[in-house]
Design a binder for these strands. Structure first.
Lengths: 303, 303
DNA sequence: TTCAGGCCATAGCTAAATGCTATCCATCAC
DNA sequence: GTGATGGATAGCATTTAGCTATGGCCTGAA
C-alpha cells in the first residue's frame, strides 16, 4: 500500500522547479507552511532527504532528489494524460452475435473490419439471445448483433438491416409452389418455431396483429432442428434467418419462401449497453457497419 | 491540479481485479462502503463510469474502464518502483575540484571514469575552496576533490591520496642544493603562501606543532603567483601542489624540494555533503577512486 | 554592529476528506 | 416467500491537510 499522495509529489516537483518553498507556495496558491510540512512528510515516507536545507537560505535539491523528482514528474504527466484524454487504444472489441445470424454475418464482418484502417479487431462471442443480453449487462461483450428479441430498456439499439420472415417447408409441400407467401397462407398449417428468446411470442404477435391465429405445433431447440422438422413434413418452419442450403441436416430437400406481409419484417440491430461508454474500437466498428452489406441481397427486404 | 488520489486508483484497480466490491474490500482491509464511495467519487471526477452496476449483482468493468484501469495499474507500478527502489540512473555526477589540484588530477580522472563500465560521466566544477564548500552545501556539486582546508562538520571526507608539502625556490637559492628539507630549515626564510581557504593557518600550524615560528612574508592570490614570487627571490614558496614545470610563468627557473617532516603531509580528500545521499553515479565514482593513481608517484609521499 | 528582510520550520486551530457501523434495496437461489 | 448475496446510503468519528501566527537563522544594508 502506497502512502504517498499525488499532491505530495506535485508539491515536491513544484518546489524543485521554483527553487524555493515560498515561491512554489505562491504558484500553487497554498500557504508556505502547507508546502513545508508536505515536503517533510514526503521525505519521511521515502526515508531519504529530497532537499538540502540551509538555515536562512533557500532549499536545494539533493542528488537523490534530482532523480526522484524527474521520475515523479514523468509519472505525474502520465496521470494528467490519464484523466485528461482517456486512453483510446484500438484493443479488440468484444462483439456478441446471435447464433442464428452468426454463420451468415460474422465472418464477412470480421474480414471487413480487419481490412479497415486502422484495423478494427473483433473478439466474437456467439451465443443465444439470453446469453447476449446477460453479457451486455455484465460488460463481457461491448456490442451485439442480434434480432431485438426483448432487450430491456438499458440497451441502446441501432438498426443495421431488416429481414422478412421466411417459411420453410418440404420441397413437395403444396405452398412450395408459390414464390411468395402471406401470413394468411399459413393459418391452419402446423408451424415449427425456434425456441429462442421472445421469438415465439414475436411470431404469434405477427399473426395476432393481422387478425389471424397460428397453429404452433412444435418448438424446436435450434434453427437446424426446425429445418429438419419441416423437411420431414412435421409442419412449416417459420424464421427470419435463411441459410443458403436447400437441404436439412438430415439430407431432405427444403424450400424457403419469403412472407411479404407489411410490417412482418424484422430489424437486425446493433445492441449496446447504454451504461457502458463505447471504446474507440467500438465506435469505429459502429461507424463501419452502415457501409457494409451484411447479408446477401436475396434475404433483404426491399426498402 | 489533479484531484484524484493514488488511493482511489488503487481501489478501482483492486475492485476490477477482485471482480467485486466486497471481495476487494476484504483484500484491502477496508470496509465495503469505503470502496463504494471511493469508486463513485472517482467516476464523478473522471466524468465517465468505470463500472457497470446491476442492482443486486456484482459490478463489471466498462470498456472505457478497462483501458483506464490498465493504464492506472501501469502508473501505480511506476509509483511503487519510485518509492521502493529509488531511481538509479547513471546521470553525470557534478564533481567539484580544487583549482590548484585540477590541472594535475581532473583530466586523467575523467578519462578513467569514462573508460569504466558502466560509464561514469562527470561534470567538473573547478573553483577555489570557498566556492567548493558553498557548492557542496547547496547541492550544485555532489562531491569535491580538494585539500581539507576547513570543510565544516556537515561534510564527509574520504582520503584518496596524501601529499608532502614542498618548498619552492629560485634555482640558485642555498636550500636548492638539498634534495629534501625539514620545516626547521625554513625558519628565518621569508615564506610565500597561497591565500586559499585555511591554507595559511594550516601552514602556520605545521610550524607551531614542531615548536617553530615561520616568517610569512607574502600572501599570494594563486599558486602561480606564489611560484613567481619565489622565482623572483621574494621568498620561499610553500605548497602541497607541485606542478611539473620547473619554471615560473614569468620564465624564471624554480626548484621544488619535498619537506619530509613526519605529520606534515596533507591528505587529498573526496568531500561530500553528509545531508546529500549519493547518487548511483557518485557511489560508482567513489568506488573507482581508490583504484586510480591520482598523481605521479614523484609527488606522493612514501607510505 | 545592528536592524530589516528573506526564507523556512513549528504550533495550534479549523475544515475537509476518509473510513466505519448500521441499515437499506434489489436480485437470485431454493 | 425467504434467506443469501452484493452493493448503495446515512450518520458519526477520526484522520489529514491547510491556514494564520510566530520563531529561528542568515544576509545585506545602514
Amino acid at each position: 500500500m502506497l502512502s504517498i499522495t499525488i499532491r505530495q509529489l506535485e508539491y515536491a516537483v513544484a518546489v524543485a522547479q521554483a527553487g524555493g518553498v515560498t515561491l512554489a507556495a505562491e504558484r500553487l496558491h497554498v500557504s508556505q507552511p502547507a508546502l513545508s510540512v508536505a515536503l517533510s512528510t514526503l521525505e519521511a515516507q521515502i526515508g531519504k532527504p529530497l532537499f538540502l536545507r540551509r538555515p536562512g537560505g533557500p532549499i536545494a535539491v539533493t542528488s537523490f532528489g534530482r532523480g526522484f523528482l524527474d521520475e515523479a514528474e514523468r509519472i505525474l504527466s502520465d496521470l494528467a494524460r490519464l484523466t485528461a484524454d482517456p486512453p483510446a487504444s484500438m484493443a479488440p472489441v468484444a462483439l456478441g452475435c446471435f447464433e442464428d445470424l452468426a454463420p451468415m454475418i460474422l465472418a464477412p464482418l470480421i474480414a471487413r473490419a480487419g481490412a479497415a484502417r486502422p484495423v478494427i479487431a473483433i473478439t466474437p462471442h456467439i451465443c443465444g439471445f439470453e446469453a447476449l443480453a446477460a453479457d451486455l449487462a455484465q460488460g463481457r461483450i461491448e456490442m451485439a448483433i442480434s434480432y431485438d428479441l426483448g432487450f430491456d430498456s438499458s440497451v441502446e439499439r441501432q438498426e443495421i438491416a431488416r429481414l422478412a420472415p421466411h417459411a420453410v417447408m418440404a420441397a413437395d409441400h403444396p405452398l412450395a409452389a408459390r414464390s411468395t407467401l402471406l401470413l394468411a397462407d399459413l393459418v391452419g398449417e402446423p408451424l415449427v418455431l425456434a425456441d429462442q428468446g421472445l421469438s415465439i411470442a414475436h411470431m404469434r404477435a405477427l399473426f395476432t396483429r393481422a387478425g389471424l391465429s397460428p397453429d404452433i405445433a412444435w418448438r424446436a431447440h435450434s434453427l437446424e432442428m426446425m429445418r429438419s422438422f419441416a423437411a420431414n413434413r412435421l409442419g412449416v418452419g417459420l424464421t427470419y434467418t435463411r441459410p443458403a442450403s436447400d437441404h436439412s441436416y438430415d439430407g431432405r430437400p427444403l424450400v424457403t419462401r419469403p412472407i411479404r406481409d407489411a410490417g412482418a419484417d424484422e430489424p437486425i440491430v446493433l445492441a449496446r449497453n447504454a451504461a457502458n461508454p463505447p471504446s474507440a474500437t467500438a465506435e469505429a466498428l459502429a461507424a463501419l457497419l452502415p457501409q457494409i452489406a451484411l447479408l446477401p441481397s436475396s434475404v433483404l427486404i426491399p426498402r
